[in-house]
Design a protein around this nucleic acid. Structure first.
Lengths: 354, 354
DNA sequence: AAGCTCGATGCAAGCGCTTACATTTGCAAC
DNA sequence: GTTGCAAATGTAAGCGCTTGCATCGAGCTT
């Protein structure tokens, strides 16, 4: 049962010209009907639009971009689409752009600067008028390219005052330090951290340093922090937690670089019969929806995703329009207190529950 | 602290011409260096590529598409990016396309056929050589457009034999019926269903009909099925579950249209002190990662996301190349048995636990 | 009735690239 | 030194669209 002819050599997509001819006007008029209808008389417009409908005409984007020198398209390159970390922020970004008649193109870099560079080039070649980027870590070539091409861009999900680049985000290091301070004040002294690959990921690095900061401030030696570095995924979080628990002196509190890792840790805890937070406390980062529904619910750092997305769109539009985008904005990140964090167990070592 | 000049009128992006001039060759040669290097002598190529690097030249995609009449870009329009339902499948799709040197563009329709139509037009205008679509429900205009423009496309995530369209997926109705049959055989008779909006969503409709089929087969009246129709989200799943539980005669088993809804139901059950599966059983659909980590782990329908994504890419590439894509493929969906499904409680009504 | 104004439309020049075809060059064979 | 041929390169014609400028009338004014 084959059907569906393809690659037709006759009847390709109708062009502006086809429409013009059939409507008995010039291509200029058709173009104006589509782009600035006010310039065209009511009657002509109706007639033209009818033909457009009949022919199923759709303007060729490339040609349009070529002629008009702008695409009304912004690109966003996020590290991953596999989990929901960036979903909420991106949605807000897109919605705000929509208000300005701008379309969003997404690409993901799999947390690889090299891949990100490729994506940057792709999106720019595709005509992105501006770019949303995550974090500050990228190849020098990426930055050079952005500069040569004069692509308006903004860095989100991070705020590092020492970086001169336009950005909107929060201080990952300080946020994690705040959470860690709370953990320490509960009495925990044996600490573990499951982090994402820190090379090429300034957020992960900052979060990890945040824990170290808090330890130092609390009179602990950061070198004692038990560390597992892996890739963001539930399975890896589970594995990381297991590794930590199998150490000679397992931590009583495990920080996770994000909620996805933490969710994995939690499920491994259950599997191992370890009570959270009775035996071990676990914390996340990001406060995605997942954090609220795992058992126990996750104490985590709440990140203002929506606000970041919306703000980024706002600033980027201004930048593109040649207006003043304003200066870098730092948003606050708060702690979302839930059930997975508690005081360390009374006795030494893990107390077997049930 | 404003910096960053934008909208430079001087020094716009370098063009092929700029490179050619600076390298002392014609634009044709530069173009060839980039597209079919073998045609160019080693020395010229080196020189040209060096200039390309220096200038940070990136070809203008629109111009290229215009001249070459193909973009090596496929589009994918999924209903939502907010949860991970389509993430795995899309990743596989993208990976497979990558093998063929094809880039993927994603757009999401928010489960709205009207919005989807807009996205279809956008992607086609952007030069998508082919399209991946989810499900069969869309506006007549969408189909008309696809036909007029002769855009190769494939429908995934659904298999409905009566639809003539090229597709790869599974039979949502039969899959849900299979799950429902198991639930019935456990002895459940009071059934509930939390489904997504069924208008414009053939998968949701099919799943709901699958439950009805099983009920009929099991001698139950489908009209007795307690139904909540909402939008996919954890919060809505929770709310839906609550509504069901507050009914005069609450169901002992609640089907959910997907895992996200089910995760919400589970968290509400915990909040209400309802034991799953002791008091009420809950099932999901999709088997996303989430299903394995909620408590209790979700019994759900396992959907072959990766296989679908890969297969879709494969067929679509063939279609685009004018080869035979083969006929529709139906993949199997199996039941992933986990903890959230059990027999109904012994006594009548909900037995309060703990 | 001639002159003006102004809204509606047409003309045509590109936008940056690819590619068929034409031209040049280098070199082996005579 | 010719000739011939292939490899390397150049020439130029578009691809489908936007837009500045020219043109054309119709309705007003005087």
């Amino acid at each position: 049962m084959r059907m569906r002819r393809n690659q037709a050599s006759d009847a390709a997509s109708p062009t502006l010209e086809d429409v013009a001819q059939r409507a008995g006007v010039s291509t200029a008029t058709v173009s104006r009907c589509l782009n600035s209808p006010v310039q065209v008389s009511e009657t002509t417009r109706m007639r033209v639009l009818e033909v457009v409908r009949q022919l199923g005409y759709a303007p060729n984007f490339g040609a349009r971009a070529l002629a008009a020198k702008r695409t009304d398209t912004f690109g966003a390159i996020i590290p991953t689409m596999e989990n929901a970390i960036f979903a909420r922020g991106l949605e807000a970004f897109q919605k705000e752009l929509g208000l300005h008649g701008i379309t969003m193109l997404v690409a993901s870099s799999s947390y690889s600067p090299a891949l990100e560079e490729e994506q940057i080039r792709t999106l720019v070649a595709r005509g992105a008028d501006a770019l949303l980027l995550i974090g500050h870590d990228r190849t020098p070539d990426s930055y050079a390219f952005l500069k040569t091409q004069r692509i308006p861009h903004i860095v989100a999900w991070a705020h590092a005052p020492e970086q001169a680049r336009l950005s909107i985000g929060f201080d990952n290091r300080r946020a994690m330090q705040g959470l860690a301070a709370e953990v320490l004040s509960l009495g925990h002294v044996r600490l573990g951290l499951i982090t994402a690959q820190r090379a090429g990921n300034d957020r992960a690095r900052a979060r990890s340093e945040g824990v170290a900061d808090a330890m130092r401030l609390g009179g602990l030696d950061p070198a004692e922090l038990q560390l597992v570095e892996t890739t963001y995924s539930i399975a890896n979080g589970a594995q990381g937690f297991k590794t930590l628990m199998e150490s000679a002196s397992p931590p009583s509190a495990v920080f996770c670089g994000n909620d996805v890792l933490a969710a994995g840790a939690l499920s491994m805890a259950r599997e191992l019969g370890i009570d959270v937070p009775g035996d071990v406390s676990v914390t996340g980062f990001d406060d995605i929806e997942l954090a609220g529904i795992v058992t126990p619910a996750l104490t985590t750092v709440h990140v203002p995703h929506r606000k970041m997305g919306r703000g980024a769109a706002h600033m980027l539009v201004a930048l593109r329009n040649g207006q003043d985008p304003g200066s870098n904005v730092e948003l606050g990140a708060t702690i979302a207190w839930r059930a997975s964090l508690g005081p360390p167990p009374a006795g030494p070592g893990i107390r077997s529950v049930r």
